[in-house]
Structure formats: C-alpha cells, structure tokens
Design a protein around this nucleic acid. Structure first.
Lengths: 218, 218
DNA sequence: TCAAAAGTGTTCTCTTTACACCCATGC
DNA sequence: GCATGGGTGTAAAGAGAACACTTTTGA
C-alpha cells in the first residue's frame, strides 16, 4: 500500500488532536496516550490521528478519541491549528486541536484499543510529551479557563451530574481556573450567571450541615 | 502535471484564507477578491490559497495575501479551521482562516496580480461570497470585536499612525465594535487601558477646538 | 458671533470584594 | 459536645454609565 493516494497539488497531512480534561480529587487532569509506534514511540501524547478522505474534521476528532481512549459522546471545542513544518519528523503534518471536558468516570479506559495505554495525568505532573503537544496542551488549558462563565458554553456542567451542589460546583471551578474563591461570593455569582433551580433536596456529605441540591434550568 | 503528489495515506487539501479588515469613512470594510477561475468563477471571495509542501501555515497565509492583493508586512491572527467535506466542490479542502486589521491606504490594490480584482467592501454591503466564506467572515468579525481592548493584541493601533488623537481612536473603536460610546467615558477608559502619552502637540482639524495628539508608549 | 467638535469632572449605579455568624451532621 | 463544612447578608471599594459646561477654531 505504498503511495496510493495521489493529487495534482502537494497536500500536507492533516491530523486532529484532542485535549481531554477532567477534575479528579479537586485537581485538573488530562488524558494522554502512550504512543505504540514511531515517532516518539512509548512517549506520552495527546490522543489524535489522521483525517480520512472526506471526513469532517470534527467527526475525525471524535473518531480518533473513541478509537484511542474509548471516550465517546462528548462535546468538542475547536482550539487552533498548528502547522509548523518541523513539528512532526515524518514530514509536514498540520494538526487541528480540540479540547473537551468530561466526567472522569465516563471512561472505562480499557486496554486493547489502538493506543498502547491511555491514562489520566495531573496537569501539574505531566510527563514529557511528543511533538509540540506541550504547547497545544497549554493553549487548551488557557482556552478552558477563559470560557468558564460563558453561558453559551457551559463547559463546567459537563463535569457534573444533572443535580449538584454549590460547593461541588466550586470545587470544579477552582480546579479549572486554578484559583480559589470566597464561598459566599461564589455562591452569589454562580446563581447570578447560571439559571440554577433549587430542587428542595439535600445532600448529606459528612459530619456537617447537608448542602442543597440544584439543577440547571434549560 | 497530473497526480504527481503521492502519499501513503489520504491527504485532504489544505488552504489558508485571510479576512482583512479596515476602517474607511467611519465604516468597517473587508478586502475581497474576485475569483478568476472555477469553482465560483467571478464570484467574490476571501483571499487565500493552498498550503505548499513544508510551508508554515502562517507564512502561507501571508504569501497568498501578498500574491492576491499586494498586502504585505501585516500581523495575522489565527481564527479557526473549517473542514466540512462539502465546503469545496473540488473535493475535501480544509481551510485555516486568519484575520487582520490594516490601514486602508497600505494597499496599492494593483491589478495584474493573481486575483482578477481585489476590492474593499463595506461590511454592511457585501456581495454573495464563494464557498462558506460568509460564515468565516462573520466569525472573523466576532473575533475582531472581542479582542479590541486586549493589551497583548493592540489590533486597533494597526489602523493608526504612530501619533493619533482620542476622537480618531473613538471612530475606529466604534466602527470595529459597531457600537457608539460616550466621548467622556471613552476618553477615560482608553487612557486607563492603554499606556498613552500626550505628545504636547495639537491637531487642527476643522472649525473647532484642536485635539491633542497622543502616542502609544512601548 | 456662531456653529462645530474637543476638552474635562462629578454623581449615581451596579458589580465585585471583603468579611462573620449561625446551622446541621457524624463521631 | 465538638469539629467540620454549609448556609446566608451587609458594608466598602471599584468599575461603568449618565450627564453639562467651557474652550478653540474657521467661516
């Protein structure tokens, strides 16, 4: 199967890469795969792969993510395109990067998929990454923390079940933005920005007053 | 020259498109070219073209823009990648879109370049555009107006000479954001956000009090 | 002397920040 | 009963919006 795809004009290769974030144990994590093949064999990398013929790039990202990590049915946001000629030793590869936020337990993280291994890493304890993936990951984190209060976006709520408590929400906001907030001000602001509804139920959660359970309206 | 570029894997074609904005007569304009070839022959389009082998995508955008419109030495900002398989009738073409803001008189807008014709259009009086360029243009305008007060960006100042007056600045801000501002509040805010220095000179500009001339520091 | 646009300062409102006390639970 | 974290309101500060009068020029 050598050189069977031919064109009138030179075509650089195109890949998609997907930076997947989650919050576990109050800390921001990202999903990496260990590369099974050269280049950068055994090195950790952002999941991703080549765009197929006539494949929508958004769907390519979803497909590659599912193949390499088992993660499905999530909402991707486009980050940027990276096209330095030297970024891939195999030749000119342009990558279109995406990012997403998901619940950590959405993933069965099964072995036996294309990637040798897929694993959550704390954002503060990353291994050395393949290609320019350190730059991409850094840009993704910036984009993530900027869109937190965007009502059209609702990234954070992809981390939560339908019903949640305000302190729970605060944990996620703090992990995502790498900041801490005053409990009272956070509660006020969050109720102001997002349409939250008090379900009337309480969640007992330890040796202290139970917290109210809310849900997002529409 | 048929089918002489061959690869092991399918490679979609990659182009860059560049949305160039300016402000003339207090109105936002964009630079379009009239296509000389099919598809969409004679239709107006955003300038752009194919990425060459091993060509940095940012440099490709600059090159295509220079070839098609004569515009050089400007700062581009990446907007997004567009990759719907049906967006180009010739096949799967992924485009990486950029946008820029320049002085209207930076352009000699000479004929004899690759494009049949290049012309400024008022953003409110656009012709029908080729491909999905209406969507790209719309996204670019949104991105442009969002970055106006970003000190790391300084887009607006690309429209101005080194020295400028506050009322002049206000005209540009209003055209770019499609809003109007109170003169007094605008003056205060702008001096607050950007490091402006009063040069001590005045600009006489009609039958009224002359305005102070400022410059951006660093 | 008049019209046109530029310069400037104050008040009010709203948003954001800072901060303290009481409450329900599990051990 | 006590430690733990959750619930809430108020005062102060800062940012943004509203607003009016004086100044300089050219005709």
């Amino acid at each position: 199967m050598s050189k069977k795809y031919c064109y009138d004009y030179p075509h650089p290769a195109v890949t998609t890469d997907i930076v997947v974030f989650t919050v576990k144990d109050r800390e921001l994590h990202t999903l990496l795969i260990q590369r099974g093949i050269e280049p950068y064999k055994n090195c950790w990398a952002i999941p991703g792969g080549f765009v197929l013929e006539n494949e929508n790039i958004d769907l390519c990202a979803l497909r590659e993510l599912a193949e390499e990590t088992g993660v499905k049915n999530i909402k991707l946001r486009q980050l940027a395109a990276y096209g330095m000629p030297k970024r891939d030793p195999r030749g000119h590869v342009i990558t279109i990067a995406y990012y997403a936020l998901i619940k950590a337990d959405d993933i069965s993280m099964k072995h036996g998929s294309d990637a040798a291994d897929a694993k959550w890493f704390k954002i503060k304890e990353l291994p050395k990454l393949a290609f320019d993936h350190d730059i991409i990951l850094n840009d993704a984190q910036k984009a993530l923390s900027q869109g937190l209060y965007d009502l059209d976006n609702l990234t954070v709520f992809e981390l939560l079940e339908d019903k949640f408590t305000i302190p729970e929400l605060q944990i996620y906001f703090e992990a995502l933005s790498q900041k801490t907030f005053d409990r009272r001000n956070f509660s006020k602001k969050i109720k102001d920005v997002f349409p939250l509804q008090d379900t009337g139920d309480l969640r007992k959660n330890g040796p202290h007053r139970p917290s109210k359970i809310f849900q997002l309206v529409i």
